[in-house]
């Protein structure tokens, strides 16, 4: 289909869709006039029930913990898919282009900027760990902190050293992190089955709301998910960066 015909068809279909969407949305309650029941209930009793003050983490890793198990394995499976799609094809080889991989520079970044990027690596790790372990008290948790943790080795990449990024985050380490995180969360669920009789049911002491060690399984689940997310993102990013920096040859 020509581009023109495609756009004409879209103008018709898209216009119709927009009209239907607007009609549908006008049937929703007004913005801010909330009529739900679940939200109100969980807002009222969440803290008393589970001793975590961040209700989003509380829902994620306790009330809806089973959904999170599925979500986590979606991430795991899709990263496996990325690794599979970007596998070494016939005729391809990995070979650092000397100047590029050992020392490349983005838009001729100055030495000061590149040193700063390298210096940020430990700071990002510290923030990531903080966000992961405080998920049950303040905004954060495994998913958010995991992505921040995964961003840390990218500092080395931005500093112009891809091979040192791979030294900070070697394939084996991040793959194990990904796998241990995913397995750990599932094992946490199984341990609930053993100690409390129900899969993913909390059996860990709840502690005092607002304290670091509170919320029972929230923190444990957060750490496992943080490990899995940071591992998964680093595996995916390394795959893409390998394609750009190392992989040569192959059929066109």
């Amino acid at each position: 289909m020509s581009r023109r015909a495609r756009l004409a068809l879209f103008a018709l279909a898209g216009g119709g869709l927009a009209a239907v969407l607007v009609i549908g949305f006008t049937g929703l309650p007004d913005f801010g006039a909330y009529h739900g029941v679940y939200g109100r209930i969980i807002d009222g009793i969440g803290v008393t029930l589970r001793h975590g003050t961040d209700l989003i983490t509380l829902l994620n890793f306790d009330v809806r913990a089973f959904d999170t198990l599925g979500e986590e394995f979606i991430l795991f499976a899709s990263v496996l898919g990325i690794v599979l799609i970007l596998r070494q094809l016939r005729g391809e080889r990995q070979e650092p282009h000397k100047e590029e991989a050992e020392e490349h520079s983005f838009a001729r970044a100055s030495a000061a900027l590149r040193t700063l990027a390298l210096g940020l690596v430990p700071a990002i790790v510290a923030i990531g760990v903080y966000i992961v372990v405080h998920g049950q008290i303040t905004p954060g948790g495994g998913f958010q902190g995991g992505v921040i943790l995964a961003a840390a080795p990218l500092g080395a990449f931005l500093a112009g050293r891809y091979l040192s990024m791979k030294a900070i985050a070697p394939h084996l380490l991040i793959e194990w992190g990904d796998a241990i995180g995913a397995a750990g969360y599932a094992l946490l669920g199984l341990s609930g089955l053993v100690f409390a009789g129900i899969f993913l049911r909390n059996y860990i002491p709840l502690g005092t709301p607002g304290h670091l060690l509170s919320g029972g399984q929230l923190d444990v689940a957060s750490v496992f998910v943080g490990l899995e997310v940071s591992g998964a993102f680093l595996v995916a990013w390394t795959q893409f960066l390998d394609q750009a920096m190392l992989v040569r040859g192959g059929q066109q």
Partner: peptide, 17 residues
């Protein structure tokens, strides 16, 4: 926001679900 770390438990909060 549904973060009860610095607001009281009876505060009006949005739906966390």
């Amino acid at each position: 926001g549904a973060i009860f770390a610095d607001i009281t438990q009876v505060s009006k909060a949005v739906d966390p679900v």
